[in-house]
Design a protein around this nucleic acid. Structure first.
Lengths: 171, 171
DNA sequence: TGTTAATGTTTGGCATACCTAACTAAATCA
DNA sequence: TGATTTAGTTAGGTATGCCAAACATTAACA
């Protein structure tokens, strides 16, 4: 029974924004959706009807807009993808927060669930593996700004990493 | 003079495919483009005219299709993004080759040049940093398939990593 | 060289998703 | 409560990008 209709990027964006508005403003309003989507108010109505027809929102003219259970499920999935991708772009790839958000907003439609799940595991791994961690990301930043990696620095880095791990064990 | 028109995903796909066909078959044919795009032959003609109008391909009815200098530049940029993203998905995130290609094909339109550049640097870093490398990716695979990371394994892993680095220095 | 098959084009139609402008309902305030 | 502002809807229009089917051209081969 799991309908695997694939929704358009636009539709997914609407759901994500409605969820967002629901969370911050209690209820989603047509005007705010238009504003967040960067489109005209008139364009929103059509999509609201569309979303309602698909059973993703509760909607009647001039009434409140809320996500149905199904709509919320999808919106939350998109929101989750967004956060995961943004986190990777921002924390690992060092993309500036605002830009990371903008790109995540586009990438979230391109990646499917299993792939995003692997990305979560990967950032988890970076955060938890003694060979990686915050200082390793620091090393990456350094790697980016220098021409050729200095092997001597590598020795230091490795030793530091080992020391840190040992203190983790004993601490 | 650097025209920064942003092209549609569809248009970028056409260019990428034309480049691909140019490289493998010497010349791009309407039928093959349709096949690769998974669309009907009739739909291709319209876009060819569009691409020609934008100065991205050399095209006249019933004639050969080749990329102009400008078109090739864009196609190569897209192709580059595709390869980089696919490599990351496949080698790092362990996404199966075919699927990695399909997702890369969608992601390549979502990521801009600077972001892709950071992704290259990141995979470069993974390949070159003594704390990362192929065995570290192996460790990630292991991390994915186990519930909780085993700290004892970490000790081994770290020591192996250190040994490997030392042998690199002396070797 | 004439016929046939393959390839490419044209046409009309459809769906999505946006716009503007006119209109309607609801909310606000005097 | 009535007038005005704000929010939401409707209607008609545009651009993209696809389809199917009829048509035109080119290539293949007999």
């Amino acid at each position: 029974m799991n309908k695997k209709i694939d929704f358009s990027e636009s539709l997914e964006d609407y759901l994500e924004i409605i969820l967002n508005l629901q969370n911050t403003h209690k209820v989603a309003r047509s005007k705010d959706i238009a504003e967040k989507m960067g489109i005209q108010r008139g364009s929103v109505t059509g999509m609201l009807k569309n979303l309602a027809k698909k059973g993703l929102i509760n909607y009647e003219p001039y009434g409140f807009i809320t996500l149905t259970r199904e709509g919320k499920k999808i919106a939350q999935e998109i929101e989750r993808r967004h956060k995961i991708i943004k986190d990777f772009l921002f924390r690992v790839l060092q993309i500036k927060s605002e830009k990371a958000d903008a790109i995540a907003c586009r990438m979230e439609h391109a990646m499917d669930r299993p792939t995003v799940n692997m990305l979560v595991k990967f950032t988890d791994f970076i955060d938890n593996c003694p060979r990686a961690g915050a200082d390793w990301i620091e090393a990456f930043v350094n790697f980016c700004s220098t021409e050729k990696p200095d092997r001597k620095k590598c020795k230091n880095c490795l030793e530091q990493c080992m020391t840190h791990y040992n203190s983790l064990l004993s601490g």
